[in-house]
Design a protein around this nucleic acid. Structure first.
Lengths: 207, 207, 207, 207
DNA sequence: GATGAATGAGCCTTCATTCAT
DNA sequence: TATGAATGAAGGCTCATTCAT
């Protein structure tokens, strides 16, 4: 039982390096098991395929991020209109900081998810997040309108590219090993930047 | 002569699809030639390798973009300090619009360059552009300082992630087939957004 | 374990035939594995390349021959001048007979080394031996001179071609399956032949 | 007609280099025509195959050598017994010198024949010459016996390897660009060497 | 649970040769 | 006679996966 755990952990550790260096498609399973000092047979006792191994390394984090992301969105949309407007910015910051903390606590897995997923079902995760984010934003805009704030409607393409850019910016922190304290600072700067940006584009004070 | 052109064009057309769908590494040369209805030998009459084929589809665009990018940066830095400050925003907009026009005139090649280059020497092009852009921005900041504008110095990590995000935003236009007129609109909005954003973060009017 | 040994031995046996018949370059790995009744994958479980397979069949013998050759030369040159002159012929004969015995005990490998190595790093082994032999001979000639024997100096080209010819003669024994006893007889005749030959060309008694 | 000759000569010149460098099997026809600046089609207007090209470069020399070799052997065996014994050595020297002169006048072709023929029907030419030589020698030995010279009969294997060695020695002159005058000197030394050698092995004066 | 040899389809590339023009 | 694009078999090699032990 201890041995089995060691085998699996050796596989995981080596697989992480291989995926990070070469991406999912470029990674060689034979290489992984060889470097891990185990046999293919041993590997296939734990996983049924290369995909499954990748998933094991990445799914918990993908799930956590997505679930947390959706949960936050839902909690926010369950707030009263007044609260939504009052707490928007704070919510956002809290969310980004929490996700950052999670990412730094699970750095390797997150990096793999963000940089090595081409060829897997996770390759579009950020895009999915972008779309959810855009939808949420639309809901919030509606609330804003109902509360009497007037905002110039945005070009949907513009929303899309900007949100993509923001997610990219954010995840660059994780990909490039920005030290944690600096990353937190970056997040608060990003928040300022984006508030000002959106306000400028919608012709209003963002909050 | 007509036939030969057809063969090459068939190869190109199919290769473009294959690269777009599967990326450089994932694309199969055998598959390309089979789908194109030619033989491997025919292919190797035109190119010496899979790399060379990829390069043929992508190099002109990579070169154009990079050269134009650098040229614009140099022209700008050759301006007088006063002119730099006066024309900054305009330069930027012109550049983005020109590059957009080029990209839309060479859409498939640009998409391949932007989405399928992992495993080739073009895989880091955007990163290189980011770094050049950051350096140029630093120079511009220095000029601003010399002209009496006071700006809060930025966290270098923050610069990096934001510039990455901006390039991502911009290239999303091309990747996602945003209609040309809308794309131009997006660029002008981006410009507003970023001006406001940088100003907010540097505690000053951007220009 | 028995199976695995069989696979490798089948590969070896077939590869030996293929290399002997077609030489290293002409031999087809695909053919070897097909004839051996195994798959390419099975082969690459044992060796990393065609070169490595060839080396596995040939390196032990090349090393043995070269090491023994050099060792004998060194031992001889470590003898006193008197002993060198006294034992020259005997040394030579012993060496040739020992090498013969080794070759006949490892006949297939030696034949491959001697006839199929074009295109590998072993292709020049005989040439290397020729050059070592010539150098040793020069040293011996110097000793002879110091001991008062007068010898007409030889045309270096002549030395080279004759030594090449001798090695060729010797290795023909192995290449052409001369029966062992006859081969030993040939060696002693060769010795006589060459002694008389060198003596005739150098105007002196060889020893 | 002049053009045609030029095309063919370009092909020949390049092919010679390619064959010398890589041997028949290793030489690439595509490479030859490319380097020669002609097209495959043009090549196949002159020759029907790579084999035929090789043959064109080599056959005249192979034929000349073989025919002259056989002719000399026949002329010699047509001599009276007395003359055979009287002229043996001279015949041999004349033959070797003539062949040398021919080889130096057709150096490239001869080198190709001697070093690049593996994989062609010329790969065994030297062996064939060896066998003819041995047969002739046997005939001569018979004559010698009939004339009252007593000679110890030789081990046939020994004859074979020695004759192989001699031919090797001789052809090394050509392969290694030994200067002509030196080569002639080597031949006369070889002659001395071999006379003494054979005499020593047959217990008699060779002539 | 673990072994690791074996599978066999697939990879990119090179070859001598053909044939419509 | 000459072109050169096209052929397609063959080359060495890697891959994720299977299975008898």
């Amino acid at each position: 039982m201890s041995e089995e755990k060691e085998t699996l952990e050796k596989i995981h550790r080596i697989a992480e390096q291989e995926f990070l260096e070469k991406g999912f498609t470029g990674a060689s399973l034979r290489n992984i098991v060889k470097e891990a000092g185990v046999t293919t047979g041993a590997f296939y006792g734990y996983y049924r395929s290369k995909d499954e191994l990748f998933e094991a390394l990445v799914k918990p984090h993908a799930d956590y991020i997505m679930n947390y992301f959706v949960k936050v969105q839902n909690e926010f949309s369950d707030l009263s209109k007044e609260d939504q407007i009052a707490k928007m910015s704070g919510y956002n910051l809290t969310f980004l900081n929490d996700m950052l903390e999670y990412s730094y606590s699970h750095l390797t897995g997150m990096k793999i998810l963000l940089t090595a997923a081409t060829g897997t079902k996770y390759e579009n995760m950020i895009h999915e997040m972008v779309e959810i984010e855009i939808e949420s934003t639309h809901n919030f805009m509606k609330v804003m309108g109902q509360m009497g704030y007037k905002a110039k409607p945005l070009n949907p393409y513009f929303e899309h590219i900007m949100v993509s850019g923001m997610f990219t910016s954010y995840f660059e922190l994780i990909i490039h090993d920005v030290p944690y304290e600096q990353a937190k600072d970056c997040i608060s700067e990003m928040s300022k930047f984006n508030s000002a940006g959106w306000a400028a584009c919608m012709g209003m004070e963002w909050l």
